[in-house]
Design a protein around this nucleic acid. Structure first.
Lengths: 209, 209
DNA sequence: TAGATTGTTAATCGATTAACAATC
DNA sequence: TAGATTGTTAATCGATTAACAATC
């Protein structure tokens, strides 16, 4: 609700804190200081305290942070204390991989349906999510209050699908297509450009060797 | 070869320049100024010129940049003017999606084999890459001069696989496992943490709505 | 030559780190 | 109370933007 004053750099670090806190919970650690966490995560203690204090004071002087409490607070900040409904557009290999990704459901991301243009795939199921024809997408988003669209189709048809989804009220797009999507201010795009990631790896290998 | 003085921020932007230049080539544009490119890409012209000048002067005063030349120079910088051999460890949905990803081959990334612990998968093929037992991985890396290991297995077994691959001389790891890998200085890790990406999306949706 | 646009230096802005008073 | 550690302000560092001289 409040204006977005918190930098992207901070937000991108939150999931990593979350992951480490989860591991701490699993290994039975009850409290942790920013100093100890900084050693484990290879970041400065200062950064951890600064990052967390963007959202409030979750620690206690002389004690540190309660692991379970901090974990649940970060979950709230990230919005993963709530259920999010997803549709996957593109039932190719990547779309199927996402649909079958058990971990997402654990985090409250539920795949409600998949969509594809390939007639041969219509009606098949992927971990409980039925593959439907593209023509049904717009109504499905409206009727089922879908928040997130995972886009795993080639860039050629991406723009049109996105326009339709926006009209239907989608809130966020998880974009795997190799294209920069143009969306209005009230729609969020998170890009996963795999080929760009691989190029970065290639660069680093090349420089180092 | 030279010391790594160029910031990660710059490097992460190179593939995006590359993508835009490719589109310009496809649409027959021969030259472009930093100003025009900045309008298309939604970044400042200053940043484009600063970024490129980290690697040399590719432009010409009063003219701008030759699109094809700049494209090929960035390819060289990224190291994608050379062939890179990859193995994929983990022949699950995500591993298969990567193997079937035609675009990679276009960029010179060739999948030489896949590896999995599941006996039932051994011997099957995925776009020309045979699925082999994990026990053969170490020798395969050595014998075939494999540079890159794409890691798509659960985090539990990731550390052991990575140790073995490093022993065999792997240069880079494209890591899809939810774990921070510890590697020596001469090995590069590029992380793709899908669940963290999805959490960032969740955060942004939550803040905006 | 005049106009355009780069390469590069200087100025600004933002993010990270250091320091320490507050306080459990 | 003494020790530990946070929350927060100040200092530093790095990245982005602006400006402009060089030059095609």
């Amino acid at each position: 609700m409040e204006e977005n004053e918190i930098s992207l750099a901070v937000i991108k670090r939150l999931p990593r804190y979350f992951r480490y806190l989860e591991e701490l919970i699993d290994s039975g650690v009850e409290r942790i200081s920013s100093g100890e966490l900084s050693r484990r995560m290879n970041v400065t203690a200062s950064q951890i305290r600064q990052d967390l204090n963007n959202f409030g004071g979750f620690g206690q002087q002389g004690y540190g942070y309660n692991v379970k409490y901090l974990h649940s607070e970060i979950a709230k900040i990230l919005g993963i204390d709530k259920i999010h409904s997803i549709i996957i557009v593109g039932a190719g290999n990547l779309g199927k991989a996402l649909a079958n990704y058990a971990n997402f459901e654990k985090r409250g991301f539920v795949v409600k349906a998949m969509f594809d243009t390939n007639e041969a795939l219509i009606g098949k199921e992927c971990r409980g999510a039925v593959i439907r024809p593209m023509s049904e997408m717009e109504a499905f988003i409206k009727d089922n209050n879908i928040e997130i669209l995972a886009l795993t189709i080639p860039k050629g048809s991406a723009t049109e699908v996105v326009q339709t989804a926006i009209k239907a009220g989608i809130k966020g797009i998880w974009n795997f297509a190799h294209i920069d999507l143009e969306v209005p201010d009230n729609v969020v795009v998170e890009n996963v450009h795999l080929s760009e990631s691989l190029m970065t790896l290639s660069y680093n290998i090349t420089r180092l060797h």
